[in-house]
């Protein structure tokens, strides 16, 4: 076997082996440790299967994800709309500048008491808080994307009489899309965080509520199963968005690669 091949096989073995080794290590340690805080991994997994497959899906997982989707969706639509307006108009940018700077600087959880004061503790409050927090990354990235449209493309549009909504749909938005996606990635992580916190602070259902309630009643294995579920959800949501991005922005990566050729 030649050395290059041997090295490649070693790398693949490491890539698969280390995570397995970490899991195995946790397994062996947790079974042996018999710690109150860190129950045995097999116990956590059994509890996970008992709790989440699929008993609490309807009562906790679906409401959580629905609020997340609603808040995230509103944020993306509003962020792109406002971001486009600000990106196209220097005056609007200057007028709204300090407000945007301030809005995005407020630490997101600080908005929760505000939401609870004004909207109570229902779904509306949670969706609102998620939407407000997710708005800023999408908005700011859209502004950058819209401002960064290649001037030659805008000249092309002018010469060929492409204006108004047509110019937005065919030139400005596609061109800004890579940036918009970058904003959406940041927003999605924030959405998940706010989903969990809002349920911990003000809810009687949802994954966040379940996790905190389990801890309060010292159902440690249940608590861990919820943490694992949140980890899995975080991973899957990020992966889904990355997949969507890869499909939608196929031209972007290919064009970049060909420019570097």
């Amino acid at each position: 076997m030649n050395p290059a091949r041997r090295r490649r096989i070693l790398l693949i073995a490491l890539e698969a082996g280390v995570p397995l080794a970490v899991l195995a290590g946790w397994w062996v340690w947790s079974v042996g440790a018999d710690s109150f805080y860190f129950p045995a991994l097999p116990t956590i997994l059994t509890t996970f299967a008992d709790t989440w497959l699929f008993e609490r899906v309807g009562s906790d997982v679906v409401p959580s994800l629905a609020r997340l989707a609603a808040g995230f969706g509103i944020a993306v639509v509003a962020g792109v709309a406002i971001g486009t307006a600000l990106g196209l108009s220097p005056v609007a940018r200057r007028v709204a500048g300090p407000l945007v700077e301030f809005g995005r600087a407020v630490p997101p959880p600080a908005l929760l008491p505000f939401g609870m004061l004004v909207l109570g503790v229902g779904d509306a409050m949670k969706v609102f808080v998620i939407a407000v927090v997710c708005l800023w990354p999408v908005l700011l990235n859209t502004v950058d994307g819209v401002r960064g449209v290649d001037p030659t493309m805008l000249d092309t549009a002018r010469v060929y009489g492409i204006g108004g909504l047509e110019r937005l749909r065919r030139i400005v938005w596609p061109s800004a899309l890579p940036q918009v996606f970058a904003g959406m990635r940041t927003s999605l992580s924030l959405a998940l965080i706010l989903m969990v916190i809002s349920e911990m602070v003000a809810s009687t259902e949802g994954i966040g509520y379940f996790v905190l309630e389990s801890q309060r009643s010292f159902a440690i294995a249940e608590m861990w199963s919820g943490i694992v579920l949140l980890g899995v959800l975080g991973y899957l949501l990020n992966a889904a968005l990355a997949l969507l991005e890869r499909r939608v922005l196929r031209w972007h990566r290919a064009a970049l690669a060909s420019a570097l050729r």
Partner: peptide, 14 residues
């Protein structure tokens, strides 16, 4: 009709 020097930037990659 106008043909720009920078073809790679006047054609829409998408």
């Amino acid at each position: 009709g106008f043909v720009f020097q920078e073809y790679s930037r006047s054609l829409m990659p998408w």
